[in-house]
Design a protein around this nucleic acid. Structure first.
Length: 292
DNA sequence: ATCTGTCCCTGGACGC
DNA sequence: TGCGTCCAGGGACAGA
């Protein structure tokens, strides 16, 4: 599922592709929970707008237009952004998602029933496709100077958070450290994968209560968050369930995971069986020996 | 402030 | 092989 590193990989690939271009036509599926802004209003509001930048805020993407308007995107759990012509062997697993391009003999993405938003540009260059099988994603059009309540709630970006900040956040809060790391209003961008991985690297058990985290441990956690995420961005993100890069390639970080999705398997450091525990309704994986 | 439960949704895992 | 059932999981929100 897309967390900060995956969203950042997407941003880096898509921004140069769309910057400076003007939207000509927008296709959508029917109104649903997915569309914070109803499809009809989206189509009206996007047409003719010129892209100035693609920003990332936590796990959100904000497509900015030169007049100050913006298109806010959240990928939820299964959201994917693709560009025209992207291809992947994985796209072949579902016939509806892709067709084999006869000329190049490979699986090229083709919009299907789960492709809820398509952005076409007036230069007839590559289009942008937002596919989301579970519709946990979100699309919202922000008018010029409209403040987004969703963005306003976000805490400091995970790549910019400091050990001091985390230490301050852990005072006077009784929750488990894992649940605190997942709280987007405190630190934005950390999801289940990177919370588990960072806590492993920092050697801290996810169930540990926030007030019991020392200043030193706060620094260790933030350092781990940063290193794990930067390494993941370099390798193209974690292709765990649905995530693919916009050009269709798999990420590489799923092969470097130490605990996430490794429940029941031996710890790669000490051989102890990786355990799973539920914290705040979300599962957490950890090594009982390496993490105290 | 925080915790719990509910909802949104569907593919994949699992049992028979 | 095939069908029914269960469930994960980010985030918004309501209610305790």
């Amino acid at each position: 599922m897309p967390e900060l590193p995956e969203v950042e990989v997407i941003r880096r690939q898509i921004e140069p592709l769309v910057k400076g271009r003007t939207l000509s036509r927008v296709e959508t599926t029917s109104p649903s929970y997915f569309f914070v802004t109803p499809p009809a209003a989206l189509k009206r509001g996007l047409k003719g707008r010129q892209v100035s930048a693609l920003e990332r805020l936590g796990k959100y993407l904000l497509l900015r237009f030169i007049d100050g308007a913006g298109l806010l995107l959240h990928l939820g759990m299964t959201g994917q952004l693709f560009c025209t012509g992207c291809y992947s062997p994985r796209l072949l697993s579902r016939e509806s998602r892709a067709s084999v391009d006869e000329k190049v003999g490979r699986a090229v993405f083709k919009p299907d029933i789960h492709t809820h938003l398509v952005l076409h540009f007036n230069d007839h260059g590559p289009s942008l496709y937002f596919r989301d099988a579970r519709k946990f994603g979100k699309v919202q059009l922000l008018r010029p100077n409209q403040r987004s309540a969703r963005l306003a709630k976000l805490g400091v970006d995970a790549l910019r958070a400091t050990g001091d900040e985390l230490y301050r956040l852990t005072r006077n809060r009784k929750r488990a450290i894992k649940s605190l790391l997942l709280d987007q209003s405190l630190i934005a961008g950390i999801g289940n994968i990177y919370a588990d991985e960072a806590l492993f690297v920092a050697g801290i058990r996810p169930t540990k209560r926030a007030p019991r985290i020392s200043r030193e441990q706060s620094f260790a956690i933030i350092t781990a968050v940063r290193s794990v995420m930067q390494r993941s961005i370099q390798s193209g993100g974690s292709s765990i369930s649905d995530y693919l890069q916009p050009d269709g390639r798999d990420g590489g970080y799923q092969d470097e995971l130490m605990v996430y999705a490794r429940e029941g398997q031996p710890c790669l450091r000490c051989g102890t069986c990786i355990k799973r525990v539920v914290i705040g309704g979300r599962s957490a994986r950890y090594c009982p020996r390496c993490q105290r």
